[in-house]
Amino acid sequence: METSDIFRMLWAGTGETLLMVFASTALGYVIGLPVGVLLTISDTDGICPHPLLYKILDIIINITRSIPFLILLILIQPFTKFVVGKSYGTVATIVPLTIAAVPFIARMVEGSLKEVDHGVVEAALSMGAGKMTIVIKVLIAEARTSLLVGVTIALGTILGYSAMAGIVGGGGLGDIAIRYGYYRYETGIMLITVLVLVILMQVLQWLGTLLSKKLDRRRG
């Protein structure tokens, strides 16, 4: 393979990987953020305790989180096919990635929101604030630094998962690393692909840390 071909392939792979990672993290937050909010407010010391709802969500999340991603990928193939029309390729991989991301994100959101001092929640309650106001203006607003750290962790984790999807023809850098590096013994291409993944992870982490520091008003 010509060097320019390899470059072109890696460039396309990087694009696919980024598409998968950002799309599934975004979709993961669309579902995971509300679930994380529900977990926080329905817990015994939350603003509307509901032990049964908490327990149900808790169990569903634990079950989905304990399924290894590779198994989940294969298990839900019929569902993926139903949603996007095929079970391989970049777009199809977004489905299992999102499903893996939701419970993970919900747990991290729960962790972040529970870090908000109960005292400020009580202060808002004492001023007659409703539940929606407290969730948006107090819980999410005050936990934003921690939530952003969570987004960075989620992107990193999903990036790792997306590489795994290469095994079943998931597209992206992981796909390249497995096809060339593993099946064709082209160790060079595999190493370069891994290097690109390492760089992506570094950039994501650096951006995330930078942004959360900028938004932190408690230090400075």
């Binding site: 005292g119 202060a123 004492s126 007659g128 409703g130 107090v138 008003r217 408690r218």
Partner: peptide, 20 residues
């Protein structure tokens, strides 16, 4: 919530919103 708006409360540890 309507009644609470008419009862002001000040706490020992201030409970100001740190990010505002």
């Amino acid at each position: 919530n309507e009644i609470r708006q008419r009862i002001g409360m000040v706490f020992q540890s201030y409970e100001l919103f740190p990010h505002k």
